[in-house]
Design a protein around this nucleic acid. Sequence first.
DNA 1: AGATAAATGCAACAGTGTTGCAGAAAGGAG
DNA 2: CTCCTTTCTGCAACACTGTTGCATTTATCT
Lengths: 146, 146
Amino acid sequence: MDAREILQNTSIRLTPVREAILGVLLNERCPMSYREVAARLPGGQDRVTLYRTLSLFLKEGIVHRVMDMKGTWRFCAHDPGHPGCPGNHPHFACRVCGRMECLMEHSLPHLEVGPETVVEGKHMVLYGICRGCAVKKTSKKEAGSS
Amino acid sequence: MDAREILQNTSIRLTPVREAILGVLLNERCPMSYREVAARLPGGQDRVTLYRTLSLFLKEGIVHRVMDMKGTWRFCAHDPGHPGCPGNHPHFACRVCGRMECLMEHSLPHLEVGPETVVEGKHMVLYGICRGCAVKKTSKKEAGSS
DNA sequence: AGATAAATGCAACAGTGTTGCAGAAAGGAG
DNA sequence: CTCCTTTCTGCAACACTGTTGCATTTATCT
C-alpha cells in the first residue's frame, strides 16, 4: 500500500505535499523528526506545512509519534499489516547516529497506579548505541589497536 | 539532610544560588522544569545559571532528570534514603496540572533487545490525569449537574 | 467553468536550551 | 587578613522546535 492509497482511505484531501511526506515516512519506517523528513523531501515546503501535515496524519491515525531524548517529536508511519502498531511499543534511540527504531517485538508493560489516576497513554524509550553503530565502533577500535 | 549538607558532600563549590536551587528541588520532591524551579526562587537568577546548575547537579549525581510530554527536561532531587532512585523508575505526567511524579513503587522493566545493541538507559512516562485533578473534575461535574 | 472549502506559504512569535565572554565570588596559600 | 587562582554568575546572542494568524493558492463538488 503506497502513500496515495493510504491517503485516499482517509477523509483528508490528497495533495502532492502530503503524498510526498507520507512517502518519506513509509520509505524509512522509523520514527523521524521533522528535520529528517524535511531533508528527504524535494524541498520548497514550508516548515509550518510539514508540522501541520504531521499533526494531521497523527489525528487521522496513520502515524504515531514518540518523543526522543532531545525533546523533539518523531513520527512513524503505521505498518498497515500491524493494527496494534499505534505506538503501543517501546522505542530505541541511538545517541551516535541519532536514529530511532520501533521495538515492535515488545509491548508496553501495564503498570498499576493509584485507583483515581487516569492513565491515557505511556511512552518508553531506551537509549544507547544501536547495533549498526556499536559494530562500527568495535571494528574501528580493533583496527586502531592492531 | 538539607541542601547545604548535600552540596558539601560533593566536590563542587557551595554557593547561595546552588543552595537555593537544590533547596527548591528538595522541597518539592517531584521532577521540575527549569521554569517551575525559577518560579520558586527568590528571583534575579539568570536562566543560563539555572540550566548550568541543574546540569551540574545531574553530573554530580544528586538529581535525576526525565523528559516530559512537552519535550522539556524535568529535574528531581534524589531521596538520600533511596540509593536506587537515580531515575530507575517510571514517571507520571498530568496533562491538567502539568505536574509530574515519580512512581517509586515500580521499577523499569528489563527489555531484551538485540545482542549487539548497547542499552545505556531507559525512560518511561505515563500520562493522563493525576488523582488530584481527576477528583476535582468529578466533583465539579457532579456539582454542575445537580 | 465557477463556487466553496481546505491546504499552503509567509511572517512573526514563544519557549527551551546552548555558547562565549567579562565581571564577581569562593576557597586556599602565605 | 590579604592576595591569588579557580570557578561561578550574569549578560548578550544564537540555534532550534513548535505554534498562530493571515493572505494566497489549490483541490473538490456542483
